[in-house]
Amino acid sequence: MTPSAPPVAVPMTAPVTTPPVAPSTLWEPEIIAFCCNYCAYAAADLAGSKRMQYPVNVRIIHAPCTGKIEMEHILDAFLKGIDGILVAGCLEGGCHFLEGNLRARKRTDRIREMLAEIGVGDERLKMVNLSAAMAPTFVESVQQMVDTVKALGPSPLKESEPREESQHLESEG
């Protein structure tokens, strides 16, 4: 991973000042990539080993399988103001647990419908399928997600309420 701007050499004697920055340029999208252990995470790892560059906006969450990613995990992140989510699983037919990625696809499709209806927008959630060897595809998917979300702007739910809010579930019986 690389910083978005190259480091600027500053003479040791120069006073340290922070240049004024327009608020719009301060925003960088926050993106989560849920990566399955067997393919997507390995591809991300390979991208790292190969020193391939991809945007720093992405935080990877290592999941045992995309089938283990519940709809609640994704909705919770959106409720808390995440700008975009990438769900990355194995190629169809290549899931270590046979059909976890196929189930994840159906769930992401459903959440995309929900996000569209809610008004958050379905483009903020995307699922991709790749093998452990497809590091360039991983990098490309991440880049595309960042580009999409940058074009959309910050999540409309961002900072509109304290982030600590999470759903409180009470259950009896």
Partner: peptide, 8 residues
Amino acid sequence: LASYAIRM
């Protein structure tokens, strides 16, 4: 799930 949607 419905609660998440309605909260948002």
